[in-house]
Design a protein around this nucleic acid. Sequence first.
DNA 1: AATTTGTTACGACTATTGACGAAAAAAGGA
DNA 2: TCCTTTTTTCGTCAATAGTCGTAACAAATT
Lengths: 230, 230
Amino acid sequence: MDHVIDVLKDKISGEVVFSENPGKALRKWRRIFEVSQRELADKMGVSPSVISDYESDRRKSPGINFIRKVITALFEIDKSRGYKTISKYRELISGVNLDVIIDMKEYSRPLRFEEFLDVVNGRALVKTDRVVGGYTIIDSIKAILTLNAYDFYKLYGYTSERALIFTKVTTGRSPMVAVRVANLKPSVVVLHGLERVDEIAVKIAEMDNVGLVVTNLRIEELIDRLRGVE
Amino acid sequence: MDHVIDVLKDKISGEVVFSENPGKALRKWRRIFEVSQRELADKMGVSPSVISDYESDRRKSPGINFIRKVITALFEIDKSRGYKTISKYRELISGVNLDVIIDMKEYSRPLRFEEFLDVVNGRALVKTDRVVGGYTIIDSIKAILTLNAYDFYKLYGYTSERALIFTKVTTGRSPMVAVRVANLKPSVVVLHGLERVDEIAVKIAEMDNVGLVVTNLRIEELIDRLRGVE
DNA sequence: AATTTGTTACGACTATTGACGAAAAAAGGA
DNA sequence: TCCTTTTTTCGTCAATAGTCGTAACAAATT
């Protein structure tokens, strides 16, 4: 567990340090840990208005002591709750064969479906009113060869409101079936590199309220555009 | 490469944020990237004495803007050198089955052999004057089943002056042979949980100037002690 | 030994952080 | 709708960060 904790601490630290809006990133993580500002403030020994000031980006360049205290407090609170949140990421961090994941990223603000559609230069087969909080790009061929339905869970980033992007797809049925069997609930599934979409894939997306998008951007450009968001 | 860059940025950020001596951590990484204070200062658009002040921990809680500028500058410099340093970590980050690694950590200051010996409560079979800059704890049984000689290289952390700790060892010969075949050069090899050490293992350690240590601490206690350093 | 390169120590000063509390606003529940 | 809880806004101030330049020190090279 210590290794998982270290990796997650690094991840949060890095995200805050490199964020245009460090306070917003802190707020995102506090919400992921399901901690109120009050509880966090109490744990850190400061006033709740301090938390609010930081999260609203009143401080443009918070010192690392503050960042460390926030993260440490969040982890201590989660520990007192039996590692409720951290345990969700344990298997993600330790068991994924990262060759399957081409790229993965969390956005600091959710994207509306239409905005996301524009980013990936995609055509919508099934629309959704759900938002996109991040994405995972998956090499479908490698995933099929190495992953079972359970392992799809590990492909998730840190929120479920995200886009799963399957590359090297022929009809799109296998990815959608896997998503359904594993009971995953991404906001959007993007199918990349196929000519005709299997109608079963479309039906699954409709039944599960998952946006379905196809795109033929080159993978490199797709990554550039997805990373260029925000 | 972008994924590798992100993970490494997170790693450095996390290490600085959680370090008792953030300046020392920054210095460590600047040296790993083989960048002079002058070059870094020029890249950041500040005076070299600024770098020196930070690295000597004159600033107890540097703001994240500064941290970000340091890391960004180091990466840009490395990029201009053809990713000379970052490429060393590419395969480490993307290809390791992390189930094999029980724990791994970098120390912000090198430990002398005697000090390290005390930490692991070990008995020295072969001594060395080399220092220990970090450690990797490896599950030997899993490593044997899944790794070939080349993959041992991936088990390294960020410096070669480190300790490789093999757990669940029967005689110690296989780990030492693997270390030799892969031409690895750890400072110290720790063999854990064996009753008698194979004399070939001892000979290899002597020939390669690798300290050889045995310990019978429980794994949990071993990890606690190793993590408790500093 | 002299020179060059790299680094350190420190005084100084402006800008910003870190933190508080009070009042207002927003959110959630009965 | 009312009440409670949570969060936000903002003025304020002491402490510290961010940065400079200078002199000194240390290491490497000629």
